[in-house]
Nucleic acid binder design. Structure first.
Lengths: 213, 213
DNA sequence: AACTTATCGTGAAAAAAATATCAATATAAA
DNA sequence: TTTATATTGATATTTTTTTCACGATAAGTT
């Protein structure tokens, strides 16, 4: 099964395993069973074993998986151990919050610069970064070989910004603006959409209410 | 098919349809086809029609779906049109950014109060809110009939906070702390985990790199 | 009024994902 | 050393989700 092509649901779960394993490692545990991971993740234990086999890691019968071993294997598999450079565009509230998110480094993302188009913001300092003007995008992208662009501009500006960075050759975009961006085939995008969360919870509460009636 | 029980993938897509429809409505369009929505969403058009039929809305042959009609139907279906009250706990960077997120209102979430445990933060103002001490949680939750709690505290504090609000009777949690929270059966939780996004993009870039080798 | 066409709605088929099952095997106990 | 047992890895089965395919129908055209 090793080396199979990944499927979406598995790819979603893998970072969560990594998170759990990181916690377990801090607690100085040595081995963990598929069953333990399964209850934590609320999936079947066979599912966990399948996921692990896709990563290409092997456990020991009777003991389970080596925590540090599996954790490393996941890091390897995801390309976490290897640093990707990223820029962030849009230094509003959300952008500023993200810029200081410690998880980036942990997951192999090295933030290199922050941009904004508003003259009032340019020059201000956020964490370790001085906000740059979007005019300097081309220089930064080429000189730092930027892999990922994080878009945190307002919705109406998102497509313009997107076109611009695609033109500069960036192939991976992490979009936080609540719009569907139009991109060429060879560019990967991941959109975080808070509306999905709100909507799912609203729907749940509505169901709940109807049950009571 | 109308009134069927919802499945996860469909429920995830529904708010995205809503978003697209909102945009189209602003552009004064009248009708939209399943095919149009499908290309936008990168799914099959039959899938779109199935999703719509689950919502319980019907289109017109040859014309498609009425944009405003479908949009309303989705709002209805998700319980968006009806306001749910929410509190936010943890007024750090992320919490502060979220507190001013305009999308909440749009999706039927009415933020009522913000809490933090740190004495330095209590009393400070964020947007329209004055940060309250977590000690006042019980009063606020009961007097405003809070439906949803948004957790934006650091990872180590999350479980404690969670237990506390569950005890106060809250049945829906939106968790932004990067941990799996332990909750009773009858509580719904949705966890946003940025690590998933980072990891997925890292993995994609790794694949890309390997292709080139 | 008959004809053409775009698009829906839905049942059937295919594909993908999750779950069940069980032989193989490392570890620990007798 | 043998036996018992927990847990893996892999295959088989079931369930879920997506895609296909086509009849039905509203709107436009001749």
């Amino acid at each position: 099964m090793e080396g199979s092509v990944i499927n979406e649901p598995t790819l979603r779960r893998i970072p969560l395993y990594h998170q759990i394993l990181t916690d377990l490692e801090l607690r100085k545990e040595e081995y963990v069973s598929s069953k333990y991971l399964a209850t934590f993740m609320r999936v079947d234990d066979a599912q966990v074993r399948k996921d692990v086999s896709i990563i290409g890691y092997r456990g020991k019968p009777k003991s389970g998986y080596s925590i540090s071993g599996l954790r490393k294997a996941i890091g390897e598999y995801l390309g976490i151990n290897y640093k990707n450079t990223a820029i962030l565009i849009g230094a509003g509230k959300l952008g500023s919050a993200l810029a200081e998110y410690p998880g980036f480094e942990e997951y192999g993302l090295k933030l290199v610069a922050i941009f904004d188009s508003s003259p009032e913001r340019v020059g201000k300092v956020i964490g370790n970064f001085t906000i740059l003007s979007v005019d300097s995008l081309p220089q930064v992208v080429t000189s730092y070989k930027i892999g990922i662009a994080i878009i945190t501009v307002p919705k109406d500006a998102a497509q313009t910004v997107c076109d611009r960075i695609v033109e500069l050759g960036i192939k991976a975009i992490w979009n936080f603006a609540p719009v569907r961006l139009d991109i060429p085939e060879d560019v990967t995008i991941r959109s975080e959409n808070l509306a999905v969360g709100v909507a799912m919870l609203s729907h749940y509460l509505k169901m709940k209410k109807q049950e009571l009636e």
